Amino acid sequence: MRFPFIPTHNWFTKKQLEVLAWLANSPDLNVIENLWAIVKRKIRDRKPTTLDQLKQNIATAWEAVSAETCDKLVKSMPRRLQAAKGAATKY
């Protein structure tokens, strides 16, 4: 894969990291979208009435996301890429 930013490409090469080929802005394949969905589910019933309450609820929900959950999402990427085949996915 060719990178437009040579320092980034060099870093990945030096670290011997495999780079998956997909569009960086594809919401179907962006793990952060799944993390936000988890956070939204955690705060759904709290119904904050102020901005400060909302911020606190988001921070609390975000901190409750386990490292294992993040790891599972990252490890699901090859399967997601396979399912995408250039189109939208069910994820």
Rank of each mutant, 00 (worst) to 15 (best):
45 D>C: 05
58 I>V: 15
52 D>M: 07
43 I>E: 05
40 K>N: 12
36 W>Y: 06
29 L>R: 06
55 K>E: 09
67 A>R: 11
28 D>K: 06
60 T>N: 08
43 I>F: 08
71 D>A: 14
55 K>D: 04
33 E>T: 05
31 V>P: 13
43 I>Y: 06
28 D>I: 04
39 V>K: 03
63 E>I: 00
34 N>G: 13
43 I>T: 15
57 N>E: 14
57 N>Q: 10
63 E>R: 14
62 W>A: 11
55 K>F: 00
40 K>G: 00
55 K>S: 05
28 D>Q: 13
68 E>F: 06
66 S>T: 15
60 T>L: 05
69 T>V: 13
50 T>W: 01
49 T>F: 00
67 A>I: 13
50 T>D: 00
64 A>Q: 13
31 V>M: 13
62 W>Q: 07
29 L>A: 11
62 W>D: 02
36 W>F: 10
44 R>V: 03
46 R>W: 02
45 D>P: 00
67 A>Y: 10
31 V>A: 13
69 T>Q: 15
69 T>M: 08
52 D>Q: 13
63 E>A: 15
54 L>W: 08
37 A>H: 09
52 D>A: 14
57 N>P: 01
33 E>F: 00
51 L>C: 07
50 T>M: 00
46 R>K: 14
66 S>C: 03
47 K>V: 09
70 C>D: 04
32 I>A: 10
42 K>C: 04
37 A>G: 15
59 A>Y: 04
61 A>T: 02
46 R>N: 11
61 A>H: 03
61 A>M: 01
63 E>S: 10
44 R>G: 02
41 R>T: 08
66 S>P: 07
49 T>C: 06
66 S>V: 02
40 K>T: 03
46 R>A: 08
53 Q>E: 15
45 D>S: 11
39 V>I: 15
67 A>F: 09
49 T>H: 06
47 K>N: 15
69 T>F: 07
56 Q>T: 09
58 I>C: 10
43 I>N: 06
51 L>V: 06
68 E>N: 14
50 T>E: 00
34 N>W: 05
67 A>M: 12
56 Q>C: 01
42 K>F: 04
40 K>Q: 14
68 E>V: 10
71 D>I: 09
30 N>L: 02
58 I>P: 03
67 A>V: 12
65 V>S: 05
53 Q>C: 04
61 A>C: 02
30 N>K: 08
69 T>P: 01
55 K>V: 01
42 K>M: 02
37 A>D: 11
35 L>K: 05
56 Q>H: 07
52 D>P: 00
54 L>A: 10
46 R>S: 11
40 K>V: 03
65 V>A: 05
32 I>F: 08
30 N>H: 08
49 T>A: 10
60 T>S: 08
60 T>V: 13
59 A>N: 08
32 I>S: 11
